[in-house]
C-alpha cells in the first residue's frame, strides 16, 4: 500500500505515465477540433474563388494621411477563415525607408501586408515596429524577415513576449489549423525603446514613445510627426471591446496623459483605420471607468471575483463587439489589481 500524504502530493509534481499524458494531449486536440471543423465549413461557404496552394493575396489598404497607410483587421477572434487578420496594421513611407507598424496575427497576414506594400512602393522596409506583445499584432513579423529590417518595440516587450511565446504559438496553431498557421513564428525585437526615440525615414520622422503599464506593460506609441498621425496600438480599442492585460489604473492614467497632447488622428489597434482622439478615447474611458467603479464598490463590501464577473459594468454589454469574449476576463484582472489598493 502506497502511503502518500497530501503534502507530498502537493510538493512533487504528480508523475503520470506516458499514456496518461498522451491521453491528455489527445483530449486537448479533440476539444479544439470541434470549432476548427465548424469554421472550416463556414470558410468553405465563402470561398468563391479558391487561391492556389501557397498563394498569398495582398492586403486592402487605406491611405489615411499623406504616406500613412492602414490595413484594417477584422473584429473577430482568430479563425482559419480570417488568418488572424484581426488587428490593425500599417506603414509609413519616407523617401529612404518604410516603417511597418504591427503585422497581424499570422505569417500569412504579415505576408499579405508585405505584398501590398511592395505594390505601392519600392522604398525598402527598414523598420518593423510592434505596438505591444500581443500575438494578433506581432505574429506576422516573420513575413518581413527577407527585408532584414530592425525590429523595434518597447524595451519591456521582448521579455513579455518571450515569456508568452510558447502559449501564443500553441493557441494560434490550434485556432488557425496547421495549414493557415504555416510559417508563423515569434520574431523578437532587436531594439527596445526605453523612453522616447526617433526614427528618420527620409523627409519625415517617427517619434516612438514608451508608455508606463497600461493595456500591457509594454505599450509603444508611434507618431508620424509630419502628419500628426499616432499609431496607438491597443491603448485605443474602438468597436472591439477593450482587453486588459496590464493595469486598469495605469491605462486610465496613460489615456489622460495622451489626451493632453491629443494627436491630430490616431490609428487604434482594433476598429476603424483612423479616428479622432476624442472618438477613440471617450468610449474607452467610459468603459474602463465603469469597470473600475463597480469593481471597487464590490471589493469594498467584501464581494468576490465571481460576483464582480456577473455584475460589474454590464451596462457596457450592448456597446461593444466581442463583449462576452473579453469582458469577464477584464473584470477578473481589474479585481485582482484593485483589491490591493
Amino acid at each position: 500500500m502506497r502511503e502518500t500524504t497530501p503534502k507530498a502530493a502537493m510538493m512533487k509534481l504528480r508523475t503520470r505515465d506516458g499514456a496518461d499524458w498522451q491521453r491528455a494531449i489527445v483530449s486537448r486536440r479533440l476539444a479544439c477540433l470541434g470549432p476548427v471543423a465548424f469554421c472550416a465549413s463556414a470558410g468553405l461557404a465563402r470561398l468563391a474563388t479558391p487561391l492556389r496552394a501557397g498563394e498569398i493575396g495582398d492586403a486592402k489598404l487605406a491611405e489615411i494621411a499623406d504616406g500613412v497607410f492602414v490595413h484594417r483587421g477584422q473584429i473577430a477572434l482568430q479563425s482559419p477563415g480570417n488568418h488572424a487578420d484581426i488587428s490593425n496594421a500599417g506603414f509609413v513611407v519616407g523617401t529612404d525607408a518604410v516603417a511597418v507598424i504591427d503585422t497581424g496575427g499570422s505569417y500569412r497576414t504579415g505576408a499579405a501586408l508585405r505584398a501590398a506594400i511592395a505594390k505601392h512602393t519600392k522604398t525598402p522596409i527598414r523598420y518593423v515596429i510592434n505596438t505591444h506583445m500581443h500575438p494578433d499584432h506581432v505574429l506576422g513579423n516573420a513575413a518581413f524577415k527577407p527585408d532584414e529590417p530592425r525590429f523595434i518595440a518597447h524595451h519591456k516587450m521582448k521579455r513579455a513576449l518571450s515569456a508568452r511565446s510558447a502559449r501564443y504559438l500553441e493557441a494560434a496553431e490550434n485556432a488557425l489549423g496547421a495549414e493557415v498557421f504555416e510559417g508563423t513564428e515569434v520574431v523578437l525585437p532587436d531594439a527596445g525603446v526605453e523612453d522616447v526615440d526617433t526614427i528618420d525615414l527620409g523627409g519625415r520622422t517617427l517619434r516612438l514613445a514608451a508608455q508606463p503599464t497600461a493595456h500591457t506593460d509594454n505599450d509603444l506609441v508611434i507618431t508620424d510627426q509630419k502628419t500628426g498621425t499616432a499609431f496607438v496600438g491597443d491603448l485605443i480599442f474602438s468597436e472591439h471591446v477593450p482587453a486588459l492585460d496590464g493595469s486598469i489604473v495605469g491605462w486610465m492614467k496613460v489615456l489622460e496623459n495622451l489626451g493632453q497632447t491629443a494627436p491630430a488622428r490616431i490609428v487604434p489597434g482594433h476598429g476603424p483605420a483612423a479616428l479622432s482622439w476624442a472618438a477613440g478615447s471617450e468610449p474607452l474611458q467610459r468603459y474602463l471607468g465603469a469597470v473600475t467603479e463597480d469593481v471597487r464598490a464590490i471589493i469594498k463590501r467584501g464581494g468576490t471575483i465571481s460576483e464582480a464577473i456577473e455584475t460589474a459594468a454590464v451596462s457596457e454589454a450592448s456597446r461593444w463587439d466581442l463583449f462576452d469574449e473579453f469582458h469577464k476576463r477584464n473584470v477578473t484582472a481589474a479585481f485582482a489589481e484593485l483589491e490591493w489598493e
Binding site: 487561391l51 493575396g57 492586403a59 486592402k60
Partner: peptide, 13 residues
C-alpha cells in the same frame, strides 16, 4: 482607399 486586392486567402486546397 487603395484597393490592392482582396485579403481573401482561404488556403487553396
Amino acid at each position: 482607399v487603395h484597393e490592392f486586392g482582396e485579403l481573401e486567402i482561404m488556403a487553396g486546397k
